[in-house]
């Protein structure tokens, strides 16, 4: 028998018996960030490709909630910080090696843009929209001229934001479960998928809904592929990674992950979406809601399980 135990009673809160330094705030932040990235990407892409009027929900309506998502996300990140009064320190340096740092800076770029985009989209969504203050109107007019530029910036920045939500994890070699380059693409695709789901929800237009249903199906397909690939990668890797994969293959996260994320969050919505494409009447809220829920739970599970996977003891 082999025994490896700490005999000096180490019980640092949130470090022992297993790491739990990140609670609900970080996965929520990552989910909201990914969702915002997804919405912004589709909107920007439509603008860049000149399809903004064809897909109005994706181009205009959904963007109205993005500032809220990002503000909630950032607030949630703020809640996670344990030395809150020093928050501003994030913006006194740029550290390219630190995903936290460049993530903060990407958000610094994306968040104001999302506010501008939402502001100039208000009149598109609510035709009778009038600003109370003339200054706002002036600004609206000013930024309206840069709609294309903003779209071009966002078509690049949004995917960076989406990838960042995954890289934040995969930068940590110390957590074997996160130590895979697949998390970046996986979180990006998942973010896009949740963005598509919001578009489906907000769209009144049948053609737009069908278009995003099709897109979502492809995204779900990629997600399933990435997940399979990720586990294959783990199983072919070092013992610590095999052990971390086992958290999902018989370990404590097995049921949660395969039932809530894979079945309810991916397979079932995909199935419903296929039915929808086959002209069955499916209330949009069901598959879209499941995708959103799946995306949220995925991040929660990966946060918790990642912290449980370790090198020592």
């Amino acid at each position: 028998m082999r025994e490896e135990i700490i005999i000096s009673g180490r019980m640092n809160p949130n470090i022992d018996p297993y790491l739990h330094i990140w609670h609900w705030q970080i996965p929520l932040y990552l989910f909201l960030g990914g969702l915002a990235a997804g919405i912004l990407f589709f909107s920007a892409y439509n603008h860049v490709t000149g399809k903004e009027e064809k897909y109005r929900a994706a181009s205009y309506i959904s963007t109205l909630i993005v500032p809220l998502l990002l503000v909630f996300g950032l607030f949630s990140l703020f809640l996670d910080l344990k030395h809150k009064m020093y928050f501003w320190r994030l913006y006194t340096t740029i550290k390219l090696e630190s995903p936290m740092s460049w993530g903060a800076w990407v958000l610094m770029l994306v968040t104001p843009l999302s506010f501008i985009l939402a502001a100039i989209n208000l009149k598109k969504v609510f035709p009778g929209w009038k600003w109370k203050y003339p200054l706002m109107q002036t600004l609206d007019d000013f930024f309206e001229n840069y709609r294309r530029t903003i779209a071009w910036i966002l078509v690049v920045a949004a995917p960076i934001l989406g990838i960042y939500t995954g890289i934040l994890f995969s930068a940590f070699n110390a957590r074997p479960l996160w130590n895979t380059s697949i998390l970046g693409p996986l979180f990006l695709v998942s973010g896009l998928s949740t963005g598509a789901a919001v578009n489906i929800l907000f769209s009144k237009d049948h053609a737009e809904r069908l278009a995003f249903t099709r897109i979502d199906l492809v995204l779900i397909g990629i997600e399933l592929f990435l997940i399979t690939h990720m586990f294959m990668g783990f199983m072919a890797s070092t013992q610590v990674q095999i052990d971390s994969a086992k958290l999902f293959l018989g370990g404590p996260y097995t049921a949660q992950f395969w039932v809530l994320v894979v079945m309810l969050g991916l397979v079932i919505p995909a199935f419903l979406e296929i039915l929808e494409l086959k002209k069955f009447k499916i209330p949009a809220i069901v598959p879209a809601g499941l995708v959103l829920m799946g995306g949220l739970i995925l991040r929660f599970i990966l946060t918790n399980a990642g912290q449980m996977s370790r090198w020592l003891y």
């Binding site: 022992d16 330094i21 940590f172 110390a174």
Partner: peptide, 14 residues
């Protein structure tokens, strides 16, 4: 330090 916990996550030795 802002207490973000990134360094804690990054240390393989906890």
């Amino acid at each position: 330090c802002i207490g973000c916990g990134a360094c804690i996550q990054s240390c393989p030795y906890d």
